[in-house]
């Protein structure tokens, strides 16, 4: 836990990246959505992935999460080459993706959502059948949310009666419980109130302090500057820069986003 406090600077470089993307290409018909992108994510690092609409950032993370299959290039996870043909394969490798509202069943309570698809069972009638161990799942959920400093008044409430921020927190908590080794968050603060946005960002910091690397996609630059160690900017499918957050500012990042600056320009 403590070693994660020293993520920035030299320590990062000395370690193996958790995720390495090399020369990744994804095309849709004639359109090259992702064009020879390299990207590394180190343990305990929060990387911001920014860019204008259609810059290719969502396509890139969907390739990492197994939703899309890239045409060219390689993805290494924990040092091994991986090919995910389905999102479930990525999740089995402990790559968790948080989308706005896509990950939860609104009609189930907090515990049922955290254990969805991986329910804990106990024997019933002397082992004849297995039933849900509601007690255990509820206790585990309570412990987990306490540990992540998430406050939810009633655990037996259906998720849809919770606020957007609380739901997002439950989705993140679930990924933590199932030992996420890489967390991908696609616009996690969208549609949230100001207070709730701050709560979600606090959770990102909490994850970082627990050593879980995060890729954060966001349009909201202040959020990105508030929590990331490094910022990757994409423009029209290409990576145009990859900078330490401490060595840049939002004006410069905007210049990259609109294509006015480009570190990897080939012709120049």
């Amino acid at each position: 836990m403590e070693q994660t406090a020293m993520t920035s600077e030299g320590n990062v470089l000395s370690r193996e990246p958790m995720l390495s993307v090399r020369q990744l290409v994804k095309r849709f018909g004639g359109l090259t959505a992702v064009n020879k992108v390299d990207m590394d994510v180190y343990p305990g690092e929060v990387v911001g992935l920014v860019g204008d609409n259609a810059a290719g950032k969502s396509t890139l993370i969907k390739c990492i999460a197994g939703v899309h299959q890239p045409e060219e290039g390689e993805i290494y996870f924990e040092g091994r080459r991986v090919h995910f043909s389905h999102p479930i394969e990525a999740r089995d490798a402990h790559i968790e993706t948080i989308y706005q509202d896509l990950a939860l069943a609104g009609n189930l309570n907090v515990g049922a959502n955290i254990f969805m698809g991986r329910e804990i069972k106990k024997p019933f009638l002397g082992g004849l059948v297995k039933v849900l161990d509601e007690e255990f799942m509820l206790q585990e959920s309570r412990k987990l949310l306490e540990q992540l400093k998430i406050h939810i008044p009633d655990f037996t409430q259906e998720i849809e009666t919770l606020s957007g921020g609380q739901r997002q927190a439950v989705a993140i908590a679930r990924a933590v419980y199932w030992k996420a080794k890489l967390m991908i968050m696609d616009e996690p603060t969208n549609n949230l109130g100001v207070v709730e946005q701050r709560q979600v960002l606090d959770l990102v910091r909490e994850l970082k302090s627990q050593g879980v690397p995060v890729i954060l996609i966001s349009h909201t630059l202040p959020d990105v500057f508030a929590v990331t160690d490094r910022i990757v900017v994409m423009h029209r499918g290409r990576k145009v820069t990859d900078k330490k957050t401490s060595e840049t500012d939002s004006q410069e990042i905007v210049q990259y986003m609109v294509g006015a600056l480009d570190d990897n320009r080939v012709d120049a």
């Binding site: 479930i88 993706t97 609104g106 969805m116 698809g117």
Partner: peptide, 15 residues
């Protein structure tokens, strides 16, 4: 119930 609540989420949860 999970499928009825959110089929996409159920799928992503490995059901």
């Amino acid at each position: 119930y999970a499928i009825g609540g959110n089929q996409e989420a159920a799928l992503r949860a490995g059901i």
